[in-house]
Design a protein around this nucleic acid. Sequence first.
DNA 1: ATTATTTATGAAAACGTTTTCAGTAATTAA
DNA 2: TTAATTACTGAAAACGTTTTCATAAATAAT
Lengths: 339, 339
Amino acid sequence: MTKLIDVAKAAGVSIATVSRVLNNPETVNADTQQRVQQAIKSLNFRPSRVAQRLRSKGGNSKIIGLVLPDIQNPFYVDVIRGIEEVMYEHGYAAIMCNFAQDEKRERLYLDILKSESIDGLIVAPVHGRDQKVAGLVLSGLPIVCIDRGLTGVEADVVLVDNQQGAYDAVSHLIKLGHRRIAYISGLPQIPTSRARLAGYEMAFRENELVVDEELIKYGDSKHESGMKLTEELLALPTPPTALFTGNNLITLGALETIHRQGLKIPEEIALVGFDDMYWSISLNPPLTAVKQPGFEMGKRAAELLFQRIKDPSRPTAKVVFDAKLQVRSSCGATTIKTS
Amino acid sequence: MTKLIDVAKAAGVSIATVSRVLNNPETVNADTQQRVQQAIKSLNFRPSRVAQRLRSKGGNSKIIGLVLPDIQNPFYVDVIRGIEEVMYEHGYAAIMCNFAQDEKRERLYLDILKSESIDGLIVAPVHGRDQKVAGLVLSGLPIVCIDRGLTGVEADVVLVDNQQGAYDAVSHLIKLGHRRIAYISGLPQIPTSRARLAGYEMAFRENELVVDEELIKYGDSKHESGMKLTEELLALPTPPTALFTGNNLITLGALETIHRQGLKIPEEIALVGFDDMYWSISLNPPLTAVKQPGFEMGKRAAELLFQRIKDPSRPTAKVVFDAKLQVRSSCGATTIKTS
DNA sequence: ATTATTTATGAAAACGTTTTCAGTAATTAA
DNA sequence: TTAATTACTGAAAACGTTTTCATAAATAAT
């Protein structure tokens, strides 16, 4: 690795001058500058980011942390892509930490990131009262939360109106005549799970229907749990006529169980999922789903993070995107009216 | 941030001793050790990885780089999960770089990683003669290639027998009676695209059939290109009776086009894809596909990387996994025999 | 012509570790 | 009892930057 001193020698200046050419070119004489630039180019010099980070901490180490619950969920992949898009433009790199919905793992990653002296952090906290993340916010590290906010501490957050999205989905099912609508939730401690439940309940309330508690199931937001809970629901004495699934992976699990049991969608069981995928149209049947703009959310989060890195004292922002119902064919009118 | 000196003061020792307790506990007296450990705990001290990395370069900075072509492709997501699994066990973090099949972007990320003093790198090079990656290998950085090897330079590599996988897929179609089988390839410069083409051609040759060049299309390995090229194929005077798609995303694109045109699978057009997804069974129809064990590949790559970090001189390894055809219902017998 | 100001540069400290080297205290060998 | 090891520990250098401070040269002001 060529370093500052090599360039300095080649250009016949001190390392301070080389550093200045790199960071404050205007403070150095034009032809010295030229000589240094030349040396830099010919030696193909690139400053060590590690040394940079060690020396000048806070705000120009060009690396951020990314802490997400589940990289297997296409929604978060979209988020990552959005974040990466704007990171790349700024010459930033990201340390990716996938904590798989496991709080212990999240903690470990946060510790690592802390000791990596990152400039900032984008995180979807395990739950709203995540002390570890809250502590980092308080410590002054620029942080923006995505998908889920933090209660009790001020922090930027980018998310979707989950309650509204769920409400729309369930209302749609109700309008189609469904009355026994099950909700397969993700982990109950995740704020989005609760918000979506609230939307579900709101739809029932507004239609003067009562929710049957046995139709609400809690899982762990993964494919397997979607499969298993769907089995349980279908095994009920009076099974639901429609399913509202709490996220992407649950939806796919539910689909698998339904197909394995040879049930017809939507004739025998209707399905609406939270989270759309660009290939939802190719599912069997094309899936009706609530779409979150993951890519845009990621971009927005990254932009907010840069803003905060630049100006740590700016007031916190809460960006709420719309969740839009994409109607396809997985939830036609019910044949088994139960009202 | 509490640092070595704080712990040292609290324990009444020098920073050297604290460092030793951390790295070579056996060299320090038992009760001193205890005192230091106590101080570490009570101050909640964690060494700065940045300083560690700057000081002792090569092999214990606990961070690696991850350079992949397309995070949107579920195959790479599996790979990442596998890698992450073993990274996590070792307390390593990964800087994730998604170069989106763009060589310029790959180069920039590699430069960044270099100046981050990573311990090692797992990469799927843009193409076999990737000079940038080759240069890094030559420079002595521990590297393992995944999904695609490097020609002309010795490096560890983990991949799948692409030719065999493609051969199996196309043979299967031929056995079902198909003769006009199209191949939608990803970017031709990607080694896997070529290996899969070779498998395709081999299947034809072994069955004493000739390939019709107009049925081979090259795209950019993404969803859109899968859609577009499928349209082109279907618009042919005598369209193919079966499609072999070169990767995940192309398959989904093809599916979308086929559905939009209202064609029946497999009656009007059969489909076999390269890359399976765990939800392939929920597609319409359940997809027959060649499955790569992405998760295992990722784990293996990470293990190889650790081995090489420990012993940079060990001979390079080439790990070839099997690609297994998962037969589902997207490619029944053809009705339009053309032989 | 002298002083004050500006411009351009370098020397050296600092960031937080690891590691070498040397030295002291304790143990063993003679 | 003295010499030779051995076991611990600390001082200081090193990693590659950025930045402060001082200084020399050049310019402007008197």
